[in-house]
Design a protein around this nucleic acid. Structure first.
Length: 127
RNA sequence: CCAGCAAGCCGUUCUAUCGCUCGUUAGCAUUUGCUAGUGAGAGGAAAGUCCGGGCAACACAGAGCAUCUCGCUUCCUAACGGGAAGGCAUUGGGGAUUGAAGACCUGAAUGACGGAAAGUGCCACAGAAAAUAAACCGCCCCUGUAGUACACACAUUAUGCAGCAAUGCAGCAGAAUUGUGUUACUACAGGGGCAAGGGUGAAAACGUGGGGUAAGAGCUCACGAGCUUCCCGAGUGAUCGGGAUUUUGGUAAACCCCGGGAGUUGAAAGACCAAAUAGGCUAACAUUUCAAGUUCACUUGAAGUUAAUGGCUGCUCGCCAAACGUUAGUGGGUAGGUCGUUAGAGAUAAAUGGCAACAUUUAUACUAGAUUAAUGAUAGAAAUCCCAAUGCAAAUUGGGAUACAGAACCCGGCUUAUAGGCUUGCUUUUUUA
RNA sequence: CGGGAUGUAGCGUAGCCAGGUAUCGCGCCAGCAUGGGGUGCUGGAGGUCGGAAGUUCGAAUCUUCUCAUCCCGA
């Protein structure tokens, strides 16, 4: 079920403030990951926001391309690599993926890196 | 044929799988959602936010001042700093004429292109002088002093000059010398006239020639160049042609003057929906200072009507309002949702009018609408271009490239970015005839 | 989406309104002083004023376009 609906995205301003003030984070080039568990009713086990800074990429075309490729990689691999670790938990996972690279890479690079992000996130959750 | 410049146009296509946003149909379910089918889904600049409008809220008795902005003419347009046609200026090209140029003809590019005789300011360095012309050099006139002269006049006398000498020459019709005066010249000083000439500079007070004068000067004349105003003619007009008058450096993307325009704020505008607390609004009470009384926070009397504050959305005048607090009512910031929000000064095609921008009429289709923000990923094929190899060529094989860039309320422009291709016009070079 | 500011030598700045010569401090180089270094004194080099056009005789300065950086408004 490789969907990516509105409920899987993190839109609420309150939740965003909560995430960036209290969330834990780690760095895995070219991404900075911030995450937090909250006790709220939910349909999917995680909500994600993808972020590319205007400071690093001036043109809107470049920012959109990075976000689209990251989103595509997230969509294709979340069910197999992310959701299994969240089955035991009752809380909702708020997740932020910030792109801090300097260049626009090919899709294969995004895919490889995001898979390792999921693996590291699973380790953090267990500990 | 190649290259360059200018203007206009196009600016990748198809298939499969998995996904995203919006609409729609059917079923399940009935706040809402799920499943299946089906339709639509970025640009010529969506960009920069440089102008102009629509739309919305607030404001708007009046007068003056300031600020910003535009600037040849006529027209187009909802409007514009945009566009069209024209005028003028500048630049470089071609043609004709000519010894060579210029005036002339032609087509092109560029122009923030009102006013410098309304006023003020500025014009470094250099240069005599940088703007009511002045007078450093220079030219000319007058006066004084000094000097010079194979010049002239008067006075004075008989020798004077050259040569080693003999001698020669000049001389009483007056030499030399000395003195006085005149004239001419030179120098200095003073007074006056002139602006012709002066290596500078980005720029020098109209240019050339003749006359004129003490020397000179548009002082005057001829030819040429230009300004202002007036008259006549052509044009809707900018302006152009002719005549008269006349000779006034540049700079307004310096201040400024003249004429036209501008209320302020922007979709985070604004309207609506449901629950609670503030602020706001409305009504009532209350009110600043002094004195007296007393139950000590009220009453009575008097004074003041000013100052300070706020509004008229740049400022001033002028006009208007009435503080802070308590109580009651009303109302609904922010967060969430709906609308605003995509059918329009629109697009495409044809006809008519107009040099054109554009306008009118008819027909056709409905063509993105997100809101942490939708167009993506993977695989394959085609198209165009480039490179390499093979080949006379056509072509084949392999490799590479396909730009600039992503709607956010909507339109009209401008500006900037842009791989590659197409059309039209102009220019230059080479080759062939 | 809207509004505003700044780009000058290796670094930080003045000059811009009112156009002709680019200033100061730190740093750098050389010399003096010291046995040597630091401190001190003296002298010197180094900037096409972010870029491109235009106005002007002349532009860091005036005008237009453009690039970059920073700030403000939820």
């Amino acid at each position: 079920m490789n969907t990516f609906h509105k409920e899987e995205r993190l839109c609420s301003k309150k939740s965003l403030d909560l995430l960036f003030q209290n969330g834990s984070s780690f760095l895995l080039y070219p991404y900075r990951i911030t995450y937090l568990f909250v006790d709220e009713p939910h349909q999917y086990p995680a909500q994600v926001v993808i972020n590319v800074a205007k400071k690093r990429f001036k043109h809107a075309v470049a920012r959109n391309l990075i976000k689209r490729r990251t989103r595509e990689a997230y969509r294709l691999h979340k069910t197999s690599l992310l959701y299994p670790f969240l089955l035991g938990k009752q809380e909702l996972l708020l997740l932020s993926i910030q792109y801090i690279g300097k260049e626009i890479a090919e899709y294969a690079f995004f895919e490889k890196k995001l898979i390792s992000v999921f693996q590291k996130l699973a380790l953090e959750i267990r500990s």
